[in-house]
Design a protein around this nucleic acid. Structure first.
Lengths: 349, 349
DNA sequence: CTGTTAGCGCATTCAG
DNA sequence: CTGAATGCGCTAACAG
């Protein structure tokens, strides 16, 4: 054995295979591209042997360079720390495999400039499309991409001024569902807690839906903005709760997403001890793993479907669909647990 | 404006830039590669203008094809659902950026064949190295990679028969630390709960360390294997607890990782109600977000550092370091919370 | 059915 | 200092 056809450090190329099989590169290429039936079975066998012997793997880079598509799609995730993102990701991955795409996952870790750098990088690798769940990309950055012929689909969050496909939760309905539940459980004072929402469409929509709904229902309530990096407003929550409870109102906290819910829960535990849930009712959008453990009512998002749907949209665009921008709003599911049960929890002191 | 130098659908190539700047491609290439000082300032300015005007981005694929390195490294993750993985990932990402690599994140979702397919895919994209945190890759698959000249570094889990760099938690010491803590709190009957560990080195090591340590300390204890997909052994845990407590022993559950801890906690809550923590003490390796909320003692892993270190190892290999396989075991940190406090918790009925 | 040829976008000798 | 020529691994006409 001459040592140099096996593990020769340098990977075998199509030329090596052709030589080994005693034929031309074209036939190899045809074989690789499944143009079966165009090759004599005899040749095909020789090719298969050669490929196996050399442990040949076609170079996707070269392939992409030539044919202009590399099957790469970018997935920009604002925060993998948020289980929501991971779940969406799973849907994205599954769908990508189904369509033959390779997802390039970029994690911006909530940093706006990382976000922009990644987008640059993605165009540099000539991805065929991008799925964006981002914190602060400006319409401008994305617009550049889109004009460059790279389809963009947005997840969870719209980007101001950008017309593009978008898929996410049906926020207004989710919020209504939650509020109706709270009302049916006898709560009559609602505190909606949300991160600064000016820049993030989904937060904005949820907040608006909250105000609309309590208005329509004639329920008393107020929005409290909570910055997770600077949680001074936790004090305001405490004050509101005390005030309401001293008037014998039954107050419930409604967190706009899981990170907020966690922050609030931690604070309540600090303040009221391990029995905090007997003193204050908390529910949230996003069904995290501890929601079950701590018996918190939630609205579960159809995360997996959101991911799948995003890829479908993207695929259609990549295939050249020229239709107008679409919006896909999927329904959430109310998961009722003890935290909002009328008996478990009472607002009295 | 002739419409065809701006957003011309097809991205600008180096040739376009050369033409626009009235020079040859070589100069552009030099500019891109930072061979500064070799270009007259005048030419450099023209190039900069041209690049800006055409919004030119060098094609990494072509670049990689030519020079043989594309700055891509693969990161194979067994389960992104496990916060451990996400945290490691953050370290990996940060370090990759520092070294100028682009991490290709592959999420195997605990499926062994997905894992193998991803590895194939990665070689197809000619990644320069791979960081592997995997469930079931066989030594053989990885060996093929390594022989192909692609460095591999393992995270958290060794792969039987494969010699490669590896970085993870110092499991023996972490387990000892935990047990010493439990003992100091007066627990005298320890139940170590772990997923099937035959195939996963970190679990195996933790289990062995558990038995070694209780042996050395003369503490009574036993290992219980819990399959998360088929949790019949939860009954055994219950039985052991009852038996021990009926003899007035103080028993503590020690979960080998966060997923196990969650499963056990959920079960205990089901069985003993919201006050379950007063009936049974639980601690675990991995400091998940709900650990704080529910006051569970843990050993926190230096996840971020693990990720960073892995990239460092990989980088050295890529740069050609020919040293023998190394192992980097980082220390965990004991986080004491109420779940194992001597006063909070008592083993009596 | 099969092989030859000509680039894809870029980096790199090697001459100006 | 600068540019023309060559080829990375592969696909796609275009001939046999």
């Amino acid at each position: 054995m001459t040592r140099d056809n096996f593990s020769n450090d340098r990977r075998a190329t199509i030329t090596d295979v052709a030589r080994e099989a005693g034929t031309g590169k074209t036939s190899i290429s045809r074989y690789l591209n499944g143009e079966t039936g165009v090759l004599s079975t005899e040749l095909r066998e020789r090719i298969e042997e050669a490929i196996a012997k050399l442990d040949y793997r076609p170079n996707q880079m070269a392939r992409g360079l030539k044919r202009g598509r590399n099957r790469l799609v970018g997935m920009l995730v604002a925060d993998l720390t948020n289980p929501y993102s991971v779940e969406v990701l799973q849907g994205v991955e599954a769908a990508c495999h189904a369509y033959g795409y390779m997802p390039l996952i970029c994690h911006a870790a909530n940093e706006v400039d990382l976000e922009r750098r990644y987008l640059q990088l993605l165009t540099t690798y000539r991805v065929e499309g991008v799925i964006v769940n981002a914190l602060g990309v400006k319409e401008e950055t994305l617009e550049t991409l889109a004009r460059g012929g790279v389809p963009v689909v947005l997840v969870d969050r719209a980007v101001e001024g950008l017309v593009a496909d978008m898929v996410g939760l049906d926020n207004p309905e989710a919020v209504r569902m939650a509020i109706r539940h709270l009302v049916s459980q006898g709560f009559d004072e609602l505190l909606f807690v949300v991160q600064p929402y000016a820049q993030v469409s989904s937060r904005r929509v949820r907040e608006a839906a909250f105000r609309d709904t309590i208005g329509a229902l004639g329920i008393s309530g107020v929005t409290i903005v909570l910055d997770l990096d600077n949680d001074e407003n936790l004090a305001e929550i405490d004050a509101r709760i005390s005030a309401a409870q001293s008037q014998n109102r039954r107050v419930a906290l409604f967190a706009a997403n899981a990170p907020v819910a966690l922050r609030v829960a931690l604070h309540m535990k600090d303040r009221h001890g391990v029995d905090w849930q007997r003193r204050v009712a908390l529910m949230s959008i996003d069904d995290s793993e501890w929601a079950e453990l701590d018996g918190m009512t939630t609205v579960r998002q159809p995360t997996y479907n959101i991911g799948e749907r995003a890829v479908e949209f993207l695929h259609e665009r990549i295939e050249g669909a020229g239709v107008a921008a679409r919006e896909c709003l999927l329904p959430g599911e109310l998961i009722v647990r003890a935290s909002t049960s009328a008996s478990t929890n009472n607002g009295g002191t």
